[in-house]
């Protein structure tokens, strides 16, 4: 039976790439001492900063820590549009 199973068995999906991705995320959070709450506060301050500089935030703000060597790079993606009153 086990011998027959060898032919019918589907190959499992390799897991090392998944482990690699999970590690990247875990290490970037650990190195920068960042948690979800801190990221939310960060996002809030970035929105305030945009407002101060004359921009409206028009979509989802994303703050993602990423590791490069032993340094953490905080990537922020902020979709903005110039405020109408600033254009006038």
């Amino acid at each position: 039976m086990a011998f027959l199973d060898m032919f019918g068995k589907q190959k499992e999906i390799p897991t090392a790439t998944r482990a690699d991705d999970r590690l990247s995320l875990v290490l970037s959070y650990q190195r920068a001492n960042i948690d979800e709450e801190k990221l939310k506060l960060f996002q809030g301050r970035l929105i305030e900063l945009c407002d101060e500089f004359g921009y409206d935030v028009v979509g989802q703000v994303e703050v993602v820590p990423q590791s490069h060597e032993r340094t953490t790079i905080i990537n922020a993606s902020i979709p903005v549009r110039v405020k109408k009153d600033t254009l006038l």
Partner: peptide, 9 residues
């Protein structure tokens, strides 16, 4: 087989 992190990783 892609089921263990390589040394390089």
């Amino acid at each position: 087989d892609g089921d263990m992190l390589s040394v390089e990783r």
